[in-house]
Design a protein around this nucleic acid. Structure first.
Lengths: 144, 144
DNA sequence: CTAACTGCAAAAGCTTTGCTTTTCA
DNA sequence: TGAAAAGCAAAGCTTTTGCAGTTAG
């Protein structure tokens, strides 16, 4: 447990958002100005292997990290990419709903909700563009 | 509708797998040897905007494409990254289970099952390494 | 004819990796 | 002191983009 790893873990625990590696880097850098991005990536990977944090592979392009290690779902804004915890019970047994025909040994599942976050909703309403934008949103929403 | 776009759509419809852009490129190239990867990307994007195909953002690093435009779920092998359709009804109303406290305008959801595909199961059993591997799998499985 | 599209190549964005030096137990 | 890890920079992989030339309608 190096100083770097400790600070990364501490800072991640303080963050309620679900930061990308780069966002973690920016915060940690305020405490350890000489830390490198590679070190952040390596430690986030190691911490997730140790089960001390979760690596999230949501939609969108980049990986995110979560100091909450309990199984839970997320909701993501399709406009600004903000991610929050989804307030919903975790469905332990949803895999039972799968037909056996897959031939797979099922190990788990991932559920992500998509929507517009409060901030993006408000902005869209202010500009009176929600209707105009709705095609865009509908389009984005089709790719689940 | 250029020749390139038509062939991309035709070939994707023939593919039962859920190919990445590069895999589409390789197949289309057999018909149009001079097509470029950029054209494949551009057309896959356009076709998905037109609603003629689906762009899938599953876990893992790369985007995949699906000529099946109905809403449905997927199951992915955590060992080899193979993706199949998940034989399960689509839960139209699952968003109702979300607590209103999010403040989000919920537009949709995405559900992905993770597991070991038949081929990888078999290989693991042959090598009698399923137990040895299970830590690895459990680790991978924790990142949902 | 011209707006849309292609091929090509370069660039961009995120993540991983090789290597040398440093740190920690 | 030796194994693990850091810092730095380069490379890797997927995707996007700029541009000049081509094509479909």
């Amino acid at each position: 447990m190096t100083r770097q790893r400790r600070v990364i873990l501490e800072e991640l625990k303080k963050m309620k958002s679900h930061p990308s590696a780069d966002e973690v880097y920016e915060v940690v850098r305020q405490h350890l100005p000489r830390i490198s991005l590679g070190t952040v990536y390596r430690n986030l990977e190691i911490l997730s292997e140790l089960g001390q944090i979760q690596k999230l592979e949501l939609g969108g392009t980049l990986k995110r990290f979560d100091s909450n290690t309990r199984k839970h779902y997320h909701i993501r804004c399709i406009n600004c990419d903000r991610v929050d915890d989804a307030p919903m019970v975790f469905m332990e047994n949803i895999e039972d709903a799968l037909d056996d025909s897959t031939g797979y040994k099922v190990i788990g599942h991932r559920l992500e909700f998509l929507g517009l976050c409060p901030g993006c909703m408000e902005k869209a309403l202010e500009r009176n563009t929600l209707d105009a934008d709705s095609d865009t949103y509908a389009q984005k929403a089709s790719n689940f």
